[in-house]
Design a protein around this nucleic acid. Structure first.
Length: 290
RNA sequence: CGCGGGGUAGGGUAACGGUAACCCGUCAGGCUCAUAACCUGAAAAUUGCCGGUUCGAUUCCGGCCCCCGCAA
């Protein structure tokens, strides 16, 4: 767990907040990528401003060379082949890789996946585990193959959650654990002393991409299920319900809630067009019965 | 020029051409063994800024500043 493979070089592929947390944790352990590959900036925000993605910003802050190809095509593969490193590391890149890329470095391409594979393959392992109330979970280091999340496993660590935090905190914990697990085996892997193990494909489960509609909740429904939705969708899209106001349907997002002795206690909300406020203020001002 | 909502007492909302109402909170008094409950009363808003229309604007028009929802 404390192995510091200082002699091993790697490139990092990622594009989300989880990627950044993994990078941070690896850096703490003394592992810095020789270069980083991420996805291009996308227009965001109210004015559709072009904002650099978080991984790119991290790379720039740490003065690490960064690439952001719109697609990984022939030309970019050739660029990669010019660079040398022992192994590629992928954490939440957001796109599939061409098979050719996976085998460029001698140590192939490894992936940090925040679930106990073969369970929770796919796009949303973390939120899905929360929605399923799967408190016995974990992180997996696997070798990427052509098929999504189906590669052989190098290492796993079980993690047990006592109570569901908001998504961001769960993500952070899992990312850090994943990064540590990776760091603990990386040099051995590159040295060739780790045996990979085929996944038990029969036990695989898959997660789907989250849709905004998934986050619509019925306040009269099961309180614990609603609580898990609020926590799981906290980063995006945020659990919401509707109220009637002046004949209009108004969306109200729940940003903070607790589950106390069998009841859902809503703490903060953001009404459409408004800003975040306490649920008490919301009920006072909007005079709604919820 | 991506679509849309909003800036009114400490907080949240309402009114919509004639200087502002409600809920919570605050303060005082009362009721109570007691209270976050209840009753009575009080303080607290030049209704974001500038200009225009008008006898008169929070309310209509124009400009500016700020805030937010949607958009993955």
């Amino acid at each position: 767990m404390t192995t510091t493979p200082s002699t091993c070089t790697f490139a990092f592929f990622g594009s989300s907040r989880l990627s950044v947390i993994v990078l941070d944790e690896l850096e703490k352990i003394g592992l810095k990528p020789t270069f980083i590959v991420t996805t291009p900036d996308k227009p965001q925000g109210r004015k559709l401003v072009l904002t650099p993605n978080v991984v790119k910003m991290w790379a720039q802050e740490h003065s690490i060379e960064v690439f952001d190809p719109p697609t990984i095509d022939r030309g970019f593969l050739d660029v990669l082949k010019q660079k040398t490193c022992d192994v590629y590391i992928v954490a939440s890149y957001g796109k599939l890789f061409p098979e050719e890329l996976l085998n460029i470095p001698p140590g192939k391409t490894l992936n940090v996946h925040p679930s106990l594979l073969p369970r929770y393959r796919g796009a949303s392992p973390l939120p899905t585990a929360m929605l399923d109330d799967a408190k016995h979970t974990g992180v997996t280091i696997m070798r990427l193959t052509k098929e999504m999340d189906q590669g052989p496993i190098l290492a796993q660590k079980e993690i047990v959650v006592s109570e569901w935090p908001i998504y961001e905190e769960f993500e952070e914990r899992m990312a850090r654990e994943g990064a540590q697990l990776l760091a603990s085996i990386l040099s051995d892997w590159v040295a060739g002393t780790i045996t990979e193990q085929e996944q038990n494909h029969a036990q695989a489960t898959y997660t789907k991409k989250i849709e905004k509609e998934d986050a619509c909740i019925d306040l009269a429904g099961d309180p614990y299920e609603n609580f898990r939705k609020i926590q799981a969708y906290h980063q995006w899209p945020q659990a919401y319900f509707f109220i009637e106001k002046n004949g209009n349907r108004l969306r109200v997002k729940i940003t903070s809630a607790q589950f106390i002795s069998g009841k859902l206690v809503i703490e903060k909300v953001i009404p459409e067009g408004g800003k975040e406020m306490s649920f008490a203020d919301f009920k006072n001002g909007y005079s709604v019965e919820v």
